[in-house]
Design a protein around this nucleic acid. Structure first.
Ligand SMILES: Nc1ncnc2c1ncn2[C@@H]1O[C@H](COP(=O)(O)OP(=O)(O)OP(=O)(O)O)[C@@H](O)[C@H]1O
Length: 727
DNA sequence: GTGCTGCACCTTTTT
DNA sequence: GGTGCAGCAC
């Protein structure tokens, strides 16, 4: 690649087409770049930053660039650095969450928490809410923490405070949620902890309360750029509005067809509101796609243009037609994996593709397993991006919990996690006494440990146990600033005996855990070496906002496997999208309302548009889900596609064209579910006549337990079973 | 009071 | 195919 070293050399602008160049050079005032996949939106952001620095002589500290993942930010940085020879270390570039966490560390004391605050991830939140439900004194304690967590998160994304929620609550359920929400926030504060959503909310609070602070950051960030704007939420919108109010130099870039995070509170309406917020906005449309072949682009367009709620786009490419899209039908998920791995081999050996140029996308993480097994069998290097994050593994979270308490002793969730790990004779009953003591005295749990000698009717031995745990933590709190981070962690591991615990156990799983801990240790020393300020607090902050995608080294020679969501923003020469079946893409829980269904369609579109040269789409008839075999049909998104764009490969033993088959079947699916009742007789094409024993689920999910002739009992999904009612 | 084992229930996607 | 929890054995 060509490098542009001299700052007077402006020929790098020639790498942009005319529309892109317009978007790059209109650097003042509000800009909205709205364009389809692969049209160079991210490129516009990168070049705009270069333009600001090189041509407009803006100092890099004055630029704030917000991306969707840390990986995207790192990529931008390296492109600016290596290719446009810019120093990027002063640019504020990162995700909303990491940038504003950084600001909160600096300014948080104004809102009543200290700079060593803990960030609770989702499992911490879950435990936390569970704890609240148990102790909140609510009559009904049977609430599902997961549901409550989601409601609270939705509220936060929509800027609804606990008080506002309580005010509008009508049902008892809502009133209880309001109570829990309010306690939740209060307890977070007491724990000196924030959840993910707070990382956006708290800055809003900060800027609204303290105009001088707002002013400071408005003056700091003269130029704001936001990538993937279609997936921002109300809170983020508000935050941007506050920050951009003064200078109004804000450039957002997005594609409504790629909005796939509404379930996380993202609101497509932010794009429309942007035009309302800034009536003088300059709108730029990019229409040339530089990524995919004609066939791929046309196929993807055809998928997404069936959505009603979208802006019409006119995407085109100068690239060649390329291969047709391979539409592959298989009998089972096992066959699917075999097919994919065979094709990967073919791509590598015959077509001389590199492993890292190939990626496999799926709807849900659990689908990776069968493919993974097959790849292992064939000794093909692969990497799973996403799924359980490295830092979410149990053994790592346990060590992290120690480190978190050392950094922030008020963090009760981490405290509870490891107070009896490894076992030190502080069980449930003992803990209960300590907790109730803390509550009665109105003190933090950690302080209750210190004063545990004063707890009534507690065994003396237990008190000693508690106190020695307290002293252990205290010791490390003192050592924290004396030892390096690596030394501190090593000592801690030694003293707690966590590693020897696994060594003793000696099982395969334990060995794997030890390996993970070793990897964790090397990650810590890596951080100590590369970070400017390698403190415990900085380390904890960094890892709580880092994801698998961010850690993934895409230069490594390995096939990558990831969800369709994770694939957003990436590109690969060869892409496989697997499990393109109804109930998976679109996902079974998102079939009911039109908006969700459209989002599922967009998700599929995002997947297709990642492919540069070759796209395989596979679906299987039989899929193993939690040990049960389930029958699937090809995705409805494959209906009415232009057959000229696809190459149909039938790998299924019964060579029926399933798409045709599906169309026929739709007519024969019984409409009224009420028509099936216990005791009635039905006829099945394969099993013959049987009696309905049990009925469960409803709608698409309606299942019947039927005993057929010969005493064969089957659980059938009515939707697929083609049952005929006998009167 | 503590710790283990077997059972039930589920799980969409992620900063 | 995993995780969390209830109930049981020590
Ligand atoms: N003017 C151009 N000339 C050549 N290649 C380009 C040009 N603009 C963009 N590209 C290339 O097209 C590909 C897609 O660009 P980019 O990732 O910026 O698009 P995008 O609009 O952000 O895509 P998406 O929204 O689908 O993630 C990249 O490989 C990029 O280098």
């Amino acid at each position: 690649m060509k490098k542009y070293k001299k700052s007077t050399d402006l020929s790098w602008l020639d790498e942009l087409n005319q529309a892109q160049r317009k978007a790059v050079t209109a650097y003042q005032g509000p800009s909205l770049v709205i364009a389809g996949a692969g049209s160079g939106k991210t490129k516009v952001i990168i070049y705009r930053i270069a333009y600001l620095i090189k041509v407009c002589k803006v100092t890099s500290q004055k630029i704030l660039a917000l991306t969707f993942t840390n990986k995207a930010a790192n990529e931008m940085k390296s492109r600016l650095e290596n290719f446009l020879s810019l120093s990027v270390k002063d640019i504020w570039m990162g995700t909303f969450h990491s940038i504003f966490a950084k600001i909160l560390r600096i300014e948080g004391n104004k809102l009543g928490f200290t700079r060593n605050f803990t960030i609770y991830d989702e499992s911490d939140q879950h435990r936390f809410i569970k704890e609240i439900i148990e102790y909140s004194g609510l009559v009904n304690k049977n609430y599902d923490p997961e549901i409550i967590k989601n409601i609270i998160s939705k509220c936060k994304n929509k800027l609804i405070s606990p008080d506002e929620y309580i005010e509008s609550a009508e049902t008892d359920f809502e009133k209880d949620i309001g109570k829990i929400y309010s306690i939740y926030n209060n307890k977070l504060w007491k724990n000196n902890a924030l959840d993910f959503d707070d990382l956006i909310l708290k800055p809003i609070e900060l800027f609204s309360k303290y105009k001088d602070v707002l002013n400071k950051y408005q003056n700091k960030f003269h130029y704001i750029l936001v990538d993937e704007y279609q997936d921002t939420n109300k809170a983020q919108h508000k935050l941007l509005k506050l920050l951009a109010e003064k200078n109004r130099n804000i450039c957002v870039v997005g594609d409504d067809d790629q909005a796939i995070y509404s379930w996380r509170g993202a609101e497509l309406s932010n794009i429309i509101d942007f035009e309302k917020d800034y009536p003088d906005v300059k709108i730029f449309k990019l229409e040339q796609n530089y990524r995919s072949t004609k066939n791929i682009l046309n196929f993807a367009q055809e998928i997404v243009c069936k959505n009603k709620l979208r802006r019409e786009k006119n995407l085109w490419t100068e690239k060649e037609e390329g291969c047709k899209i391979n539409l592959v039908s298989l009998y089972s998920d096992k066959d699917e994996s075999r097919f994919i791995v065979d094709k990967i081999k073919e791509e590598i050996f015959k077509n001389k593709k590199k492993l890292r140029e190939i990626s496999v996308f799926y709807r849900i993480n659990s689908q990776s397993r069968t493919i993974e097994e097959r790849l292992q069998k064939n000794n093909i290097p692969y990497i799973i991006v996403g799924g359980i994050r490295f830092y979410e593994r149990k053994e790592i979270k346990d060590i992290l919990a120690y480190l978190k308490i050392i950094a922030n002793p008020r963090d009760e969730i981490s405290l509870l996690r490891i107070i009896n790990y490894p076992h030190r004779g502080i069980g449930k009953a003992t803990l209960e006494k300590v907790k109730s003591f803390a509550r009665k005295k109105g003190i933090e749990l950690y302080r209750a440990l210190k004063n545990s000698s004063r707890i009534q009717n507690l065994d003396k031995r237990k008190k000693t146990n508690i106190l020695s745990f307290y002293k252990l933590i205290e010791k490390y709190r003192e050592l924290k600033d004396k030892l390096s981070l690596t030394e501190l962690t090593r000592c801690l591991l030694d003293e707690t005996g966590i590693i020897s615990l696994f060594k003793e156990e000696g099982s395969r799983e334990s060995i794997e855990r030890i390996e993970n801990i070793m990897e964790f240790l090397s990650a810590i020393s890596e951080f100590s070496r590369t970070s400017e300020k390698p403190t415990l607090e900085n380390y904890l902050q960094e890892i709580s906002l880092i994801t698998d995608i961010d850690m993934w080294n895409d230069a490594e020679e390995a096939v990558s496997l990831m969800t369709l969501h994770s694939a957003k923003g990436l590109e690969f020469p060869v892409v496989f999208i697997v499990g393109v079946e109804d109930n998976l893409i679109p996902y079974i829980k998102r079939l009911e309302n039109e908006e969700e269904l459209e989002e599922e369609r967009r998700l599929f579109y995002v997947g297709c548009t990642r492919a540069k040269e070759k796209l395989y789409i596979t679906y299987a008839k039989i899929r193993n889900r939690f040990g049960n075999e389930t029958v699937s049909l090809p995705s409805r998104f494959l209906n009415d596609i232009d057959m000229n764009l696809v190459n149909i490969i039938e790998m299924e033993s019964s060579s029926r064209n399933d798409i045709e088959y599906r169309r026929k079947k739709e007519i024969t699916v019984p409409k009224a579910e009420e028509s099936f009742e216990k005791g009635q007789l039905v006829k099945h094409p394969t099993f013959g006549i049987g009696e309905i024993i049990e009925k469960s689920g409803e709608g698409e999910e309606l299942r019947l337990l039927v005993t057929f002739e010969g005493n064969i009992t089957k659980k059938l999904l009515v939707k697929y079973a083609r049952l005929e009612l006998l009167h």
